[in-house]
Design a protein around this nucleic acid. Structure first.
Length: 904
DNA sequence: AACCATACTTAGGAGATAAATC
DNA sequence: GATTTATCTCCTAAGTATGGTT
């Protein structure tokens, strides 16, 4: 305890808080030098512990992970070492600082208060009194520090007041929301510019009632005209008459009427999402079908039978034996087996063929293969079905589900996204998820809440069941909801991406990002200034915003113990950042979905210095870099610049902005293909910015090898063609110089031999195959097969080739091929081949560069689709080249709303 | 501030389908 | 035309963010 005191004193300032989170000039200076002589004295870094008077506090609640709920992480992430910091620091650490690793901390969590006194974080949980006490005792130990702090307290008190004043001013600003809005028209138009009261004037409830009687099921398939036509009446409120007419026309055409919401300037305030909502609920997965008697789990060599519930669980596992990446994961197996045995215990384990109970105790003794093979056979059978039958099956399913596919949203027919309730299965958590492999249970109607209009007919739950609840939440966009059993996560049934409501919020998202353009300069200016703030909180916040803005990091909410250990900006830990003077920062951590983020970047000198401070001892592996910062605090600050501004907006903004810039720099030249390529290159750049990755396809290596071989084959042909020149005109050798005719070094004799053999072999195979096929055809036509002799004859071609190569190898000469070969012609051939080589090389580089970059995510979520539409129009490339059918539907609003001049 | 409940967006992988290639 | 490869769609996990409660 004594040890830690350097932190504690600060606490004492509970009334005037601010003190401890200051960063002294001295510290700043010290940070300029390599290592501060006695690190632990720096007050700036010590963390304020005590409760504070709420006002001043931007104080984090959370300091490092030793504190209460924070997840203790073992920092295994990536298994990196980060030696520079930790090792050197370790040596001069004051005793006090025998900081446990986070894991240890967690272990002792409960009784560790005193012990942890050096872990500032912890302190925050202490009641005031105890904090004070600690502080006092510490005084004697750390006089220096204390003094410093005390003096500072006074100064800081003043500063704090000032800061407070400023802050409150800033706060005031956002309150003037309406004002801001008015000058920023394009911001969130939907949300705000409301024409508040006039929505849905006396809709036609009658209509609805009658509608609600009609099972939706029929509506979508049959006539949609009616309901659809009714809708505009309410939304139109007088304006947009033309459109209504159009709509009706279209409806009459049996076409879906179109609601151009992006042209509708009067919208609600964004909280009320609908007035009338009808839908048919959800589709439940099929009941479990028990395995045929012949298919059994084998336990310890004995085939055993299970009760249906247990068998179902076994079938989940058995069904995925082919997915090694799950079943080779020990956590996955352990979790599965735990849940499996729980069911076994409940259902009486298994029985052998004599009906004797066999207790299943060891996972290793379970052989699921028969189950796997059974399902595999089913899959194959399904695949082998004649096309017509497959189609029929699909159509059948579609009809059965038709009524769930659409809902009526304020009278408009809208596609529902995920109307199928998630079937039971094994939970496939990503990365090192502690719960991966656990059994995700079947969802019962009793767990499902339905959200629907008051006047709509509530969909009937399956016979003998009832819904958990039926709500009429007009502020929610979901139709049904349940909680999943593994993480307690909520699952929502919502509309599809091409629905109006999703389109609208997508639109809002991009408008918000565009709005940020107006504020970004000021924000950047501010955070640059605040990078030097004396207040730790502010400095951390500024630094975090810098990282988010510059490197597109995610916000980084806190995570729980029972989740994979991943981080974002605010949750970055000591070990995730390595500092390499003078100003390079190396990020290495696992982000969302446990995707690795690795980047070496140059940063602003002040940022470098700050990170160094934030990493200063006593912090060590497992500790938060931004121990004073939470995502809420960060977002709260951001919102003061612009309503609705949060960390994630920066990603959207930077992605779209980057894309806009790149597209602008393109020249409208070349073929369509080239333009598409140029677009994709820009897209790729954005994807890289956002760190959107995919796992390299298993076939990637082989496919690259193949391409390489092909290129080499072509190079060989180039050489051979050159040799032909000599054959045609021996004098050419002198003219062009001997060097020109040398075979590339890497194509050595061994390679040539190998290549020739492969070529010959390939030819043989082709001939043989062709022969077989021809024969089949003959048979099919009722004629008789060709004799094997025919094949031998045909294969002579390959033999000739082999002979030719043999001769070439021997003589070192290549006979000219083709009719009337001339040097000029051969030259032309060479050019052609070289061109092919170039093309292939580019293709290969493309493939290589693309192998672990996923372009889709940024295209779907980050790049303002209007940019793509503009590009398509300006460069005259059909939009289909960029957006698939579903994307075109999703971005319908963008496709229809911009012209060439639009700019992000 | 911590914690929880809630609701919505963003994300990669599996499997289905379409396109390219042999 | 069959097979391989690229692309698209579906699925659902994993984030962000907010608001209420203690």
């Amino acid at each position: 305890m004594s040890s830690s005191d350097d932190d504690t004193p600060l606490v004492r300032g509970k009334t005037q808080v601010v003190s401890n989170d200051r960063i002294s000039k001295a510290e700043d200076k010290a940070m300029d030098k390599e290592v501060p002589s006695n690190g632990h004295v720096e007050p700036g870094i010590s963390i304020r512990m005590g409760p504070v008077d709420d006002m001043d506090v931007d104080e984090p609640a959370t300091n490092g992970n030793a504190g209460g709920k924070r997840k203790a992480r073992s920092s295994i992430t990536n298994g990196k070492t980060y030696k520079d910091q930790s090792s050197s620091e370790d040596d001069d650490k004051p005793l006090s600082k025998r900081r446990r690793t986070s894991q240890q901390a967690k272990a002792v969590k409960d009784d560790s208060d005193s012990d942890l006194s050096d872990v500032p974080l912890k302190a925050r949980n202490l009641p005031k009194a105890s904090a004070e006490q600690i502080g006092e005792s510490s005084d004697s130990d750390t006089p220096l520090n204390t003094k410093l702090v005390k003096k500072k307290e006074e100064i800081e008190k003043a500063a704090a007041k000032e800061a407070k004043a400023i802050r409150s001013k800033e706060k005031a600003a956002p309150k003037r929301k309406p004002k801001i809005e008015s000058d920023s028209d394009d911001d969130i138009p939907l949300a705000k510019k409301k024409a508040p009261v006039k929505k849905a004037p006396a809709k036609k409830p009658k209509k609805e009632e009658s509608d609600s009687d009609v099972p939706l099921a029929k509506k979508p398939i049959a006539k949609k005209g009616k309901a659809a036509a009714a809708a505009p009446a309410k939304k139109g409120k007088g304006k947009l008459k033309k459109e209504e007419e159009e709509d009706q026309d279209r409806a009459a055409d049996d076409e879906e009427e179109e609601y151009r919401w992006w042209e509708d300037t009067a919208k609600g305030d964004g909280t009320k999402k609908w007035d009338a909502l009808e839908h048919n609920g959800v589709v439940f997965p099929p009941e479990y079908v028990t395995l045929p008697k012949s298919v059994k789990l084998i336990y310890d060599g004995t085939p055993v039978s299970l009760q249906p519930e247990a068998e179902e669980a076994a079938s989940f596992y058995g069904g995925m034996l082919n997915s090694t990446h799950n079943i080779e994961n020990p956590t996955f197996n352990k979790n599965f087996f735990e849940d499996f045995t729980a069911i076994l215990d409940k259902t009486g384990h298994s029985k052998d063929k004599d009906g004797k109970t066999v207790k299943i105790k060891k996972f290793e003794k379970c052989d699921f293969k028969p189950i796997f093979e059974h399902y595999e056979a089913e899959r194959t059978a399904k695949k082998a079905l004649p096309a017509a039958e497959k189609k029929a099956l699909k159509a059948e399913k579609e009809t059965a589900e038709a009524q769930y596919m659409y809902c009526m949203w304020d009278g408009r027919k809208q596609k529902v996204g995920n109307f199928r309730v998630e079937p039971p299965s094994l939970f496939r958590g990503r990365g090192e998820h502690p719960k991966t492999g656990r059994i995700k249970k079947r969802v019962l109607p009793e767990q499902i809440t339905i959200n629907i209009g008051e006047k709509a007919k509530v969909p009937a739950p399956p016979a003998g069941h009832r819904w958990k609840e039926v709500k009429h939440d007009h502020e929610g966009t979901w139709l049904a909801m349940w909680q999943e059993n593994i993480n307690g996560a909520y699952k929502y049934v919502m509309l599809a991406a091409n629905s109006d409501i999703k389109g609208q919020s997508d639109f809002k998202k991009f408008e918000k990002a565009r709005e940020l353009k107006k504020h970004i300069d000021r924000i950047r200016q501010d955070y640059r200034r605040e990078l030097k703030s004396e207040k730790m909180v502010d400095r951390q916040r500024a630094t975090a915003i810098y990282l988010i803005d510059q490197f597109a990091l995610r916000a980084g909410n806190e995570k729980g113990e029972d989740e994979a250990d991943t981080v974002g900006c605010c949750s970055l830990k000591f070990q995730h950042i390595t500092l390499r003077p003078p100003e390079t920062v190396i990020f290495d951590f696992l982000g969302k979905d446990s995707i690795r983020f690795y980047d070496e970047v140059k940063v602003d000198a002040q940022v470098f210095k700050n990170l160094k401070i934030f990493k200063k001892e006593p912090k060590t592996v497992g500790d938060d870099i931004f121990d004073r910062l939470t995502t809420s605090a960060l977002n709260k600050h951001l919102t003061s610049y612009m309503p609705g501004l949060t960390a994630k907006v920066f990603r959207t903004y930077n992605a779209s902005y980057t894309m806009a810039r790149l597209l602008k720099s393109l020249k409208a030249t070349g073929t369509i293909q080239e333009k598409v390529k140029a677009y994709n290159d820009a897209n790729r750049e954005v994807a890289i910015l956002c760190n959107h990755k995919r796992t390299v396809a298993a076939s990637h290596g082989a496919s690259i090898d193949k391409m390489n071989e092909k290129i080499n084959g072509l190079r060989y042909q180039v050489w051979r063609t050159k040799m032909m020149m000599i054959d045609v005109d021996p004098k050419i050798k002198k003219k062009k110089g001997a060097e020109y005719f040398e075979r590339p070094e890497d194509l050595d004799n061994e390679w040539v031999k190998h290549h020739q053999d492969a070529e010959v072999e390939e030819m043989r195979q082709k001939i043989t195959k062709k022969f077989e096929k021809d024969n089949e055809k003959l048979v099919a036509d009722g004629e008789k097969e060709m004799k094997p002799k025919e094949l031998t004859e045909r294969l002579e071609k390959a033999d000739e080739l082999a002979a030719k190569y043999k001769k070439e190898n021997k003589t070192g000469k290549v006979e000219a091929e083709g009719k009337g070969p001339t040097v000029e012609k051969l030259d032309g051939n060479i050019d052609k081949i070289n061109q092919r080589i170039e093309n292939m090389k580019i293709q290969m580089e493309d493939k290589e560069g693309n192998k672990e970059v996923a372009l889709g995510t940024s295209k779907i979520n980050y790049i303002d689709p209007r940019l793509t539409v503009v590009f398509s129009k300006k460069f005259d490339v059909p939009i289909e080249k960029f957006f698939s059918k579903t994307l075109r539907e999703k971005f319908d609003w963008a496709i229809k709303s911009v012209d060439e001049d639009w700019d992000f």
